[in-house]
């Protein structure tokens, strides 16, 4: 009897080990495509960027001379990089809160149960289908000094026209307006999805107790929406740090570097000036910025978020 149990146990563990091996092998097969692609096009290049940031390179991007922290010292002292950081932070400040407030407002409107509201939802989400290049070209004309609609409107009420894209103070605002418009579609769709997930019963009981619209908004809608808003804030922040196409088409970083956002600065340093070393140092800086934003968001944001 004893022997039989021992035998059974032995075969069971054997089967168990065998299955574990089979599982492990098939898991690897299923995960292999992702793992290879992530390694080749994400983890390896991140490491390589870090490596390059300590070197001087030639035009082909071959690391020649080890310079230690010099690239970092150089960019941290360079006035143009300071400008770029300042422009990027200002840009984040201009686009993220405004963009989310507008999208939230539109989503609240489009969440009302009215006839024909689907049409408005389609209109609001439409900017998601418009590419960066197309949006930027359209807005380039809207900002056109003489023919653009903005200056024509200003002229028709007798004001003096504004050099939207040519004046250092206005250029960043103009790029920000374009970006807010472009991002409305995506944020709107996400927030609307969040609103539709809010439990109807909560509103019914609030109505019975006679709570007004804004009271409901503050006490039910916003708290219930907080996970969605949290997500939209994170995505918008990261997107703002990664802005490139609008800048390339609208201003090329000018005038006097006032719209030289960080990704545009990296692009110019690497692919126009062929300074791969300093461009890599800037890339690492960008990576750290986004890393910190994400961590802070999860650390502080998550606590205030209310999950259903």
């Amino acid at each position: 009897m004893k022997n039989a149990t021992a035998f059974q146990e032995k075969t069971l563990t054997q089967i168990d080990t065998k299955w574990r091996f089979v599982h492990w092998r098939s898991a690897i097969l299923y995960l292999l495509p992702s793992m290879i692609l992530f390694s080749v096009f994400l983890f390896y290049p991140l490491g390589k960027t870090l490596y390059l940031s300590f070197f001087l390179t030639d035009q082909q991007g071959v690391a020649n001379v080890f310079v230690g922290w010099e690239n970092y010292q150089y960019i941290l002292q360079a006035e143009s990089f300071h400008k770029s950081i300042k422009a990027t932070l200002l840009f984040v400040l201009y686009t993220v809160p405004t963009g989310i407030l507008i999208s939230l407002f539109l989503a609240l409107l489009a969440n009302e149960k009215l006839k024909g509201v689907g049409f408005f939802r389609t209109i609001y989400s439409s900017t998601m289908g418009v590419s960066v290049a197309a949006s930027a070209v359209v807005w380039l004309f809207i900002f056109h000094p003489s023919m653009g609609i903005l200056n024509q409107l200003i002229a028709s009420v007798g004001g003096t026209s504004i050099d939207w894209l040519l004046h250092p103070d206005w250029a960043l605002v103009s790029v920000a307006v374009t970006t807010i418009w472009m991002n409305i579609g995506f944020s709107f769709l996400i927030i609307l999805g969040g609103l539709q997930n809010v439990d109807e019963h909560l509103y019914e009981s609030a109505k019975i107790s006679g709570a007004g619209y804004f009271y409901q908004l503050r006490r039910i809608t916003i708290p219930m929406l907080s996970p969605t808003l949290f997500f939209v804030v994170t995505v918008s922040l990261i997107n703002a740090f990664q802005t490139f196409g609008q800048v390339d088409i609208l201003t090329q970083g000018g005038p006097s570097e006032s719209t030289n956002l960080i990704v545009y600065s990296i692009y110019r340093e690497a692919f126009v000036n062929y300074q791969f070393g300093t461009a890599s140092a800037q890339s690492i800086f960008l990576f750290l910025c986004i890393l910190i934003v994400t961590i802070l968001q999860f650390k502080f944001g998550e606590r205030k978020v209310h999950y259903q």
Binding site: V40, L42, Y44, P45, T49, Q60, S283, F287, I290
Partner: peptide, 22 residues
């Protein structure tokens, strides 16, 4: 590891990626 990939901005890796493609 999969989650961590979301924190790496693609733009921070574009220089080596360009060299790889080349």
């Amino acid at each position: 590891i999969f989650i961590s990939t979301m924190m790496i901005p693609w733009e921070a890796t574009m220089i080596p990626n360009f060299i790889t493609i080349q």
